[in-house]
Computed example of a mutant assay.
Amino acid sequence: MTHDPVVDRLGLAERHLSPAARRALDELATVLDERIRPLLADAWEHATMPSAVLGELVPLGLMEPDGVSAEEADSTMFSGFRNYALARCDASVATMYNAQSGLFRAIVRHGGSAEQAAQWDPLIRRFEMTGVFALTEPDHGSDIAGGLATTATREGDTWILDGEKKWIGGADGADVLAVFARDTADGQVKTFLVDREADGVSLDRIDGKVSLRIMQNFRIRLSGVRVTEDRRLQGISSWRDVAAVLRVMRSDVAWIAAGIQAGALDAAIRYTADREQFGRPIGGFQLVQEKLARMLGNATSSLTLAVELSAQQDAGHWSDENSALAKMVTAQTARETVALAREVLGGNGLLLEHGAGRFFADAEAVYSYEGTHEINALIVGRSLTGESAFV
């Protein structure tokens, strides 16, 4: 279950979520375990996202679950435990769902006007309007704040967009692309909701990935794409506005990093119960138990950090450095945890059938996306010293 004591020994879910919210997450955990997990090894092998994944998840109504108050459903605590449960099953599944529930929904809710948010958010919650967050570019990732090269030129009530985006997950299934572009008139960053099938939009799948193979990423080209002013998010007028939304999103990644550690621990524990060497289950070996204990410590500390961050945010205390610290620490810790899981399984840890291999590879993507380790470290360092080390 989502909050079982093996990976939540402190009872954090029980202390921070209502019974109705926990029931919704238990239902999610059951669907993930019984209907989605059996699809994952084949999906990884063929680098495809089965349509059944969203087919199973969307009817659960996880952005407005039955019996859960609107305030709790919209809290970063509930969305965090939701991401945790998804990532505990698979990082690609969590990343895909969060592309809608986190990235796209956040930019519309926090970057749109009150009227735009009221119009579109209900559709987004029900997956009746699907979208992705198109910020990163082929030549600009960590330096996107100053380097963003996609342009937007206004002609009356229409904007003309030109440029490229890269690493945009799930773009092929989205109705709209939330595209960030630099206004040629004032040099400031704006955000536009672009129809995926609009003239001038083309998508190319990125092949050859060794991480998040199930989640499909795309390179997007925009050539003379026309977007009306009413599809520009009215609350985004500068990079400062974008950064405020990114602050919200980094907590999502901390929860995902915690979740993949729980999933890796699950895989390791299952294996140690079944695998025998020297005439006994390897779960009874001292060195194996030491590795499992370290994994549990990492997973518990990461979950605790994510919970504390969400508690602060839900209380109205938001800071770039706290979000950056949580993402940096949990993603770094995840690399050690999944490596330990792979070690416990020995050579079998490389086989998809045992599960640990997916977490081992996927931790690398989580370590890099939504702000690299180095960028997040500089955000934290700036808060500690009062000096910016960004170039």
Rank of each mutant, 00 (worst) to 15 (best):
P19W: 00
R23L: 05
D26G: 14
L32D: 11
D33N: 12
D33T: 12
E34C: 09
R37C: 11
L39I: 02
L40C: 09
T48K: 01
L54Q: 10
E56W: 11
M63A: 03
D66Q: 10
V68N: 01
E71C: 05
T76I: 09
F78N: 04
F78D: 01
Y84V: 01
A87T: 07
R88H: 08
S92Y: 10
A99H: 06
A99G: 01
I107Y: 12
H110K: 04
G111C: 14
E115A: 14
E128S: 00
G131V: 02
P138V: 10
A145S: 06
G146N: 12
G146S: 05
G147S: 07
A149L: 13
L161K: 08
D162K: 02
G163F: 10
E164F: 07
E164W: 11
K166G: 10
G170F: 12
A171T: 00
A178C: 03
A178P: 02
D183T: 06
T184M: 05
K190A: 11
S202N: 02
L203D: 07
S211R: 14
M215K: 03
E229C: 15
E229W: 14
R231N: 05
Q234M: 12
I236D: 09
D241V: 05
R250M: 04
A257T: 00
Q261G: 00
A267K: 15
T272S: 10
Q277K: 12
G279P: 13
G284W: 14
E290G: 08
S302I: 02
S310A: 11
Q312V: 02
A315F: 07
W318V: 10
E336G: 00
E336H: 03
A339G: 15
R342L: 14
G347R: 08
H354G: 08
A356H: 09
A361H: 07
A363Y: 00
V366C: 09
Y369G: 00
Y369W: 15
N376C: 11
T385V: 13
E387A: 15
S388Q: 10
